[in-house]
Amino acid sequence: MLSYLIDIFLIGVSAAIINNFVLYYFVGICPFVGVSRKISTAFGMGCAVIFVIAIAAVLSWTITAYILMPGAPLSAYVAGMFMPAEAAAGIDLTILSYIVYIFAIASSVQFVEMYVRKFFPPLYKALGVYLPLITTNCAILFACLVIMSKITGVDNPADAWDLGRALTLAVGGGIGFTIAIVIMAGIREELNLCDVPKPFQGVAIALITAGILSLGFMGFTGVDSGLRKAMMPKPEVVAQAQPATEAGK
């Protein structure tokens, strides 16, 4: 239990700060550069993104684990009605993953848009057309893709991510996006009062600022491996006393 919690904590911290989605993985740059002019709008956008990314991650984890991955339970069951059981167990629908994910994201955005319109009308007005544009926010699709690779891309089925880890990655990534966009909004509000050379006004100076921010965040590299070493129980490097079993091919 404790090691599970430590794992979750490290995944969340890593996604939010150390491998920040915007400043390290370069996803979510378009809203990062487009919506970061005022702190209040930036924070609202960040919260909307966290909401969408959480729903999208849950949807994509569930669909991948139960329908899309090779040998997934639901697909194997349905295929078992048309094919012999052996062929049905090997059914692999991962070719449809990207299409399924983007439609899951579009639905989550639709849902969040209705929610924001009902409960936060001023935010809805402030975000305007940027709210439906969250569909094209790379950060959300990126989170879904990472979750997919942690389910289908691992050699060892016991290492495949469960829903808790997937959700933590998504929410951590969303929080990292919010942190980055709010910092950027704060800096840009200050930059408005400065004398920026004409060619650099607007997007160019924002990018250079992002570069310096990214430089700062690079200072966090290696924190997660250090934390992991400090928090995990010391592994025993001496040979095991119990006999190990050999699993068949």
């Binding site: 090691s3 016991a158 290492d159 129980p233 592994p235 190990a244 050999e246 699993a247 068949g248």
Partner: peptide
């Protein structure tokens, strides 16, 4: 290709 399962404290390593 073969696969070995090793019992370690807390989890099984494959």
């Amino acid at each position: 290709p073969l696969s070995f399962v090793v019992d370690k404290p807390g989890k099984k390593a494959v």
